[in-house]
Structures are given as structure tokens and as C-alpha cells.
Amino acid sequence: MKEVLEGRVILFGDNVDTDQIIPAEFLTTGDPKELAKNAFIKVRPEFKNIVQDGDIIVAGRNFGCGSSREHAPRALMGAGISCVVAKSFARIFFRNSINLGLTLIECDVKANEGDKLIVDLKRGTIKNIRSGEIFEFKPLPAFLLKIVEKGGLMEYVKEVLNEKNSYNAR
């Protein structure tokens, strides 16, 4: 896991639901790159043209509410989003992102569209380069940090399975 992320802000409001992130009609693939082609297609069709690798989404409350579709964080990852910073996250979106290794930060950041942010995951700070303001956030609980640091739930499960296999082989 990278300890410092630097990226350009794409701004969203409150209650961005997973139907907005990736509408249901595109849920016949799990491929992040394919899904990214239709990210925000109904509410912000220009998204796929403006998004750049490493961009950071800054949003309001309840980001990712609604459907459990893991296709939503996958679409964001496929689009190159490095991190989502929001005032709060809906719970299934939060789980899915942690499990996939997409960095989420709960923090009330003041930023405009296009601002550059430097996110220091170890120190728990976000700096807005334009305004010079620094915002602090609480790190994830230890267990979740462990999953994120391993690169997601898949790696964690593989370890559990390996331990089980080596135990069975004894």
C-alpha cells in the first residue's frame, strides 16, 4: 500500500448512490475497466473523459448508498481513482472498498474541483495544495488496516487457506 497519495480532486455532493456510480444496465461484467466506461454515465456523462489516473473523489455524506453492487468501487478503481474522501460512507460500499483495497477516508475536506491533494495515510493528514489547509483524519481500525495493507480481502483469505492447508498437511 502506498503511504502518500497525490491527486486531483473530482467533486461530488451528498448521497451519491451506487446506481449513479454504475447503473444497473451495465452489471453484466465484473471487469473494472469495462465498468469504468459507464461510471456516472447518467448523472455526469463527462466523467470518463475528465478522469485521470490517481484522481481523488471528494464527496459529502453517505457516499455509495443503495445497492450492494461491488461493481461500484470496481468502476472507480477501473477509472483510476486512487482514493475517495467523504464526510461519511454507506456501509456496504465501505466494506466492498476495503475488501478490494480501494482507499477510503472519512474526512470533511474543503476542496474545489481540480484542486491537488496530498494524502498521507500514515500520518492521517490531507493537505490541499491550493489553499494550504491541512485536514486530519482517523486511521482505520487495526483489523481493517491489516486487510488494506495486504491489498484486500483476497490476500487475507489466501493466507487463511494456506494456514489451513499447512495445518492439514501436518
Binding site: 465484473g30 450492494s68 466492498n96 487475507y156
Partner: peptide, 30 residues
Amino acid sequence: GADSHTCSYGALGAFSTGIGSTEAAAIMAI
């Protein structure tokens, strides 16, 4: 369940909740 409305089963006194696909795969395995 990998569907957000899995919380329906609380009506019968179960604890049930929606999850994602990767964690559904994890449960299938462990």
C-alpha cells in the same frame, strides 16, 4: 447476501445484512 436487501430476514429474528461479491467468495472458501 450479496444484495443490499438481505436485511429483510430480520423480520424473522435473524441477523442478516448485505455484503459484496468478494466477501461472498471469501465466505464460500473459509
